[in-house]
């Protein structure tokens, strides 16, 4: 196999994995960063969303080789203490049910707020429709994004 040096959540790590291995499994199986979730493996559910620099990507369909030196942020690295404004809003509004999809929801929403600090309802819907939640927490996700955007104005 090949050694690759990655920057994950601000730290440099070396992984020994084939270049075609999707990042999702690099995180989960090799680095034991299990906050990033598997839901579909084909880019359909958004559970595995992480940031490459500030761009959200589906880690289940992003091979290791594609990272190309960019900084990776997973849910564990979004904030040091779980105190990112979105994380706080998600707790405050009791968004999660089973919670399994929530890292992907939060990472997707966080990237949106970087790009569009005050997104319109349509922009939120257009972005968040890419992340599935079987428990039906969509309305509260919408509120949490709105609340966070308001607080950041």
């Amino acid at each position: 196999m090949a050694e690759t040096i990655l920057t994950v959540n601000g730290s440099s790590v070396t992984v020994d994995a084939p270049p075609e291995m999707p990042l999702l499994w690099v995180f989960r199986d090799l680095l034991h960063l299990t906050g990033t979730k598997y839901g579909c493996g084909i880019g359909q559910c958004g559970s595995c969303t992480v940031h490459l620099d500030e761009t959200p990507v589906r880690s289940c369909v992003t091979p290791l080789a594609q990272v190309d030196g960019r900084a990776i942020t997973t849910i564990e690295g979004l904030s040091a203490t779980g105190a990112h404004p979105l994380q706080e809003a998600f707790v405050e509004l009791n968004v999660a049910q089973c919670g399994y999809c929530q890292p992907g929801q939060i990472m997707t929403a966080a990237a949106l707020l970087i790009r569009r600090p005050n997104p319109t309802e349509d922009e939120v819907a257009e972005t968040m429709r890419d992340v599935l939640c079987r428990c039906g927490t969509y309305l509260r996700i919408r509120e949490a994004i709105r609340l966070t955007a308001e607080r950041q104005q």
């Binding site: 034991h32 299990t34 906050g35 979730k37 598997y38 849910i75 779980g82 009791n94």
Partner: peptide, 28 residues
């Protein structure tokens, strides 16, 4: 209103689901 006791762990990615359990020497 008491929220959910696991909410802080859920949003930080620390919550452990069935698929997140890791054992030494485990294979997939």
């Amino acid at each position: 209103e008491m929220g959910a006791i696991d909410a802080p762990d859920i949003v930080s990615g620390a919550a452990i689901y069935g698929s997140d359990v890791v054992l030494p020497g485990m294979v997939m």
